[in-house]
Simulated scan of single mutants.
Amino acid sequence: MSTLTLKGPYWVTVRQYRRTLSLVVGAVLLSLASMVALMYMDSPTAGTDPNFDYTVLRIAMDWASSAMILLPLVVGAFVAGPMVARELESGTYKLALTQSVSPARWLGSKLLTAGAVIVPATVALIGVYRLGWGNVGGTWSFQWHEAGTYEATGPVLVAQVLLALGLGALIGQLVRRTVTAMALTGLVTGLVLLLLGQLRWSLMPVQTLTGPLTEGSVGPDVPVSSWQGGYGLLTASGDRLPSDACWQRTEVWDVCPADMNVVAQYWDHHPASHHWPIQLIETGIVLALAALALFAAFRVLRARHP
């Protein structure tokens, strides 16, 4: 982002955080270069073992998954602390207000500048992650529904960083202490995303597979790529029982007393085809929460600086 094309509070914001913005761009480029290098070094054609399984790349992707989960927390903490709370704590925001800049424009310039960098950077990081995921996706710990992989392979991560942006702006104003605002924003953002993660698999109805309860049977043939939910036993009347209901009576898993009327096993799951519908539904919910947080942030600003 060139400061030559920016004016007023936008120019000031970029000048204030030019090093941070440069670090963001550098981090994205470094991530891309590292991923390409790892893919080359860890490819079967580069190695001597024909059964090479991308071991180094898998380790790097594990780290990348964790980093993508933490990205919204880092964004929220930065916005709440250095961009908002620190200026309110030190009183430097008053200088901007003396330059014919309204409080709303002061805050808006910071959020727009941060968003203009954070959103493209997040999209770029998703692209880098998917580049590596193309070699390990669908294997153990890299299924579409795994924590980290799910967030890093769709638009929900972009919505999450926007939510963190809104929460940071709101909490930074309420707390007005840099370190406290950073810690509290990270905590609140993490709790909100944790709650949404728990509700994620309820956003669409699950599909149910059934199979006979026979000797040696381990349940219906659920696709490996599916998110696996509840499972158990079905009675003739359609009631569901825990998977160990028969064992509790007979101490044999596949032998059920006649009075239980068990006729089959069931398994609830989300197939891989649910990936994008769930992503889009969750993205919409997170964006709505982000808009609500931003609205609250500007309401607080107006109440304190009419």
Rank of each mutant, 00 (worst) to 15 (best):
S217L: 04
I171V: 11
V74F: 05
M204T: 15
A116S: 13
A258Y: 04
W253N: 09
Y93P: 11
L111K: 09
V192R: 06
V75M: 06
S90N: 08
D259S: 00
A147R: 14
V117W: 04
R240H: 14
A296Y: 09
A297G: 12
L241I: 00
P223W: 04
M61V: 13
G230Q: 14
L57R: 08
W201C: 00
G186I: 01
I285F: 15
T214C: 05
S43C: 05
A297C: 11
A164T: 05
V175R: 07
G137T: 01
Y10A: 12
L38G: 15
S2R: 09
L193H: 08
T180D: 02
V224T: 09
S34H: 08
A236G: 10
G115H: 05
L193E: 06
R177N: 14
A147E: 13
M204P: 00
V255I: 08
L70S: 04
H145I: 01
H145P: 01
P155C: 03
H145L: 01
R249A: 14
Q207L: 08
T113E: 07
A264R: 03
S31L: 11
V286L: 07
W247K: 06
A80F: 11
T45Q: 12
L199M: 14
T122V: 03
V136Y: 01
T5Q: 12
S2Y: 03
